[in-house]
Simulated scan of single mutants.
Amino acid sequence: MLSFIVRRVLAAVGTLVLSSVLVFLAVQALPGDVATQVLGKDATPDAVAALREKLKLDQPAWERYADWIGGALHGDFGASLVSGKAVGGEVGMYLGNSALIALVTVLFAVTGSIVLGILAGLYRDRWPDHLISTVSLVGMSVPEFVVATVLVLCFSVALPWFPAVVLYGPEATVGQLMPAVWLPALALAVVMAAYIVRMARTSVIDVMASEYVTTARLKGLSTWRVVTRHALPSALLPTLHVIALNVAWLAGGVAVVENVFNYPGIGKLMLASVQNRDLPVIQAIALISAVVYVVCNLAADLGAMALNPKLRTRGRTR
C-alpha cells in the first residue's frame, strides 16, 4: 500500500513540474511584446526598455523560469502588471470566491448524480432509467453558458428568486455572495452531473450482473444490502475518476459561468488578465489549475485504493 501511495505521489509531483514548464512556455509564446502591450504604442523606447528590464524579459528563458517557479514554491508569483498588487493575494481573493461556487456545485452534483446513476442502473430499461438517461444526455449536450442563460430567464426574470448578476467586487463577504451562488452552481452542476450519472449507471449495471452479486442474492440477502455492501463500492471505482476529472474541469468551466453572472471569481480574473496581457496573473492561475487537476486525480487514485482491497494488498501478495 505504501509503495502504491509513493508511486502516485511521485507521479503527481512529476506532472506538476512538467505542467509548470508548459505553462511558462505557453505564456512566453504569446504573440507581441509584453512591455509594449502594457505601456501602449505611444511609449518611448526608453520606457519600454526599462519595463523589459524590470520584468526580466532581457534574461534567458531558463533563468526567468527558475525565478518564477522558485517564487511560486514560496507563494510569491510576482506583482500584477495592471494593479501592481501581489499576484498571490489578488488571485487568492478571487480563488476563494470561486471555491464557494465549486463547493456548492460538488455537493449537489456528486451526491445527486451518484444517487441518480444508481437508480438508473437498478431500474435498467424502465421508466426511471429512461427519464434519468434522457435528462443526463441533454445535460451533456448543452453548453454551460446556455444552461446559465436559461436559469437566469427562469429564476431571475420570470421568477425573481435569485439575482441575475453580482454587483459586489472581489472583496465581498460570503454572506453577500451567497444569494448569487446558487444559479452559477446549479448551471455547473447540471453539466457536471450528466457525465457522472452515465458512468455510475454503467458501473452499477456491470456490477449487478457480476457473479459475486448473484451469489449474494442466492444467499438470501436483501436488495438494499446487496447494493450498499457489495455493489456500490465496486461501482464507485470507475466513477471516482470521472468525478475527479469533472471537479478539475470546474477550474476552467467556471470561467464562462462566472462571466455570465458577473461573479467575481477566478474565471473572471483570468479573462481580464488575458485581455490585459497580465502575464504574472495568467501564469499563477494556469499553475493553480494544474495543481487542482493533479490533486483531484491523486485523490481519485487514493480513493480507489481505499475501496479496492486488491490495491491495498498488492504489495503483500508478492
Rank of each mutant, 00 (worst) to 15 (best):
L240S: 07
L271N: 11
L186P: 12
I5M: 15
W161M: 09
A102E: 08
A194T: 10
E63S: 12
T15A: 11
A99S: 13
V242E: 07
E90A: 05
V226K: 03
S133A: 13
L39E: 06
I118S: 08
V138D: 05
V165F: 15
A231T: 05
A49I: 11
F108P: 03
A244E: 06
Y263K: 02
Y263T: 01
A72P: 12
M1N: 13
D129C: 09
L177G: 08
V135N: 04
V27R: 05
V181R: 01
T202C: 05
Q28V: 11
G117P: 05
P179R: 05
A185V: 06
V142L: 07
D67Y: 15
L236H: 04
L131N: 05
A172N: 07
L95C: 06
F162V: 02
T15R: 00
Y94M: 08
S222D: 07
P163W: 03
W224A: 15
V165I: 13
A43G: 12
I132W: 09
V17M: 11
C296Q: 04
L153P: 01
R198S: 08
V152L: 11
V91R: 03
F261Y: 13
S203F: 06
G78L: 02
V91D: 05
L57I: 12
L2I: 05
V254E: 06
Q28E: 14
G265S: 00
G117I: 10
C154H: 04
P184C: 06
L103N: 10
S136I: 09
F162T: 02
M208K: 12
N276C: 10
L122V: 11
G253K: 03
L107D: 08
G70M: 04
V6Q: 14
A99K: 05
N246F: 01
T202R: 11
M199R: 08
N308C: 04
N308Q: 04
A304Y: 00
T149C: 03
G112S: 15
